[in-house]
């Protein structure tokens, strides 16, 4: 569950609690009065380029300090060194110690984090196995592909087993097989009780991970919650329902019948697709019931019924165009 401002919960019992957070970059307001709280699970952070996603993530990870407002992770300020125990951050940056190998990098980061030196080798092995880098551990970071470096960053983020993971564009540069593995990994981490905030432009993967989204636009939160709620709350744009029936001869009858209902704004027969009818409405649930009734009364079997623009991509596109 995601809370939307005003946040009412006490900060020390939620994984992430932001209240009225703003951040200036010189004269430019990067983040404007953002309030939200996250519960355990995966939450997607969506927004177009320059909407403030990375700024918010950097603030949550304690790499930036808010100009106004406050952020708490289980009641601890992430800017302080104590807060760094609680958050694992995989940033969007691609700068490494290029002369180190993947194994060296994780071992040294583990040492810097204060993990006991005896436990470091086994821990690093385990993490490399989890992210799928065990076989290439000795590769120098400057010779790694983008996907390998992405995995190294994620490995670094889960090194200290923090309760909150913040992943900025984790799928960037990873091949489809790798993305599938990463999705599985994140779902596994979610099931172990972690809270994960992930931002990405790979909306297919986001859809597989979660339906909970926080949408940013121009530094403000425009929506927080399920995608459908975002759509319902913010958009005047009607929903388009695609209906596929078995018999092409009955398509016109169906179109005429369904058009009589006041909730239906329009119908459309796509060119070259004789079996498909597109129905435009603001009340999809009511129209569904009408369609079922018409189908039963007139013996018109429905092969497929789909709401076309419920996906985050379409919602995003609509939101950010308007």
């Amino acid at each position: 569950m995601i809370g939307v401002s005003p946040v009412a919960t006490k900060p020390d019992i939620v994984p992430l609690w932001c209240k009225k957070v703003s951040k200036w970059h010189g004269n430019f307001l990067g983040l404007n009065d953002v309030s939200l709280e996250l519960r355990p699970g995966i939450t997607a952070l969506l927004g177009s380029n320059g909407s403030g996603k990375s700024t918010l993530m950097n603030l949550i990870a304690g790499q930036l300090y808010p100009d106004t407002g406050s952020i708490r992770i289980f009641g601890v300020d992430p800017w302080t060194w104590r807060g760094k125990h609680l958050v694992g951050y995989s940033p969007d940056l691609d700068y490494f110690y290029s002369s180190w190998s993947i194994n060296d990098f994780l071992m040294r980061m583990a040492c810097l984090a204060g993990i006991e030196s005896k436990k470091v080798p086994s821990l690093v092995n385990e993490i490399l196995d989890v992210v799928g880098l065990l076989s290439v551990r000795t590769t120098l970071l400057r010779r790694c592909s983008l996907g390998m470096r992405q995995r190294a960053k994620i490995a670094h983020a889960i090194l200290m087993d923090p309760p909150l993971l913040v992943l900025d564009e984790p799928f960037r540069g990873i091949d489809p097989v790798g993305r599938r593995d990463l999705v599985q990994l994140l779902l596994k981490l979610q099931s172990s009780g972690k809270t994960i905030l992930v931002s990405s432009h790979e909306l297919e993967e986001i859809e597989k991970l979660t339906s909970q989204v926080v949408m940013l636009r121009s530094g403000r939160v425009v929506s927080a919650g399920p995608v459908s709620r975002a759509r319902d709350r913010l958009l005047n744009k009607p929903v388009e329902i695609a209906l596929e029936i078995e018999s092409a001869e009955q398509i016109r009858f169906l179109a005429q019948t369904v058009f009589n209902y006041s909730e239906v704004l329009g119908v459309h027969l796509p060119e070259g697709k004789a079996h498909i009818l597109m129905v435009l409405t603001r009340n999809p649930e009511i129209v569904f019931s009408y369609l079922v009734k018409i189908s039963i009364e007139n013996n018109i079997p429905i092969r497929r019924l789909e709401v076309l623009d419920e996906a985050p991509a379409e919602v995003m596109e609509s939101l950010f165009q308007g």
């Binding site: 790499q63 060194w81 760094k84 490494f96 110690y97 984090a113 204060g114």
Partner: peptide, 15 residues
């Protein structure tokens, strides 16, 4: 210059 300060700042030790 190499923009690797992040790796140090993300550690749970005082700066």
């Amino acid at each position: 210059e190499g923009k690797t300060l992040f790796w140090l700042f993300s550690k749970p030790v005082p700066r």
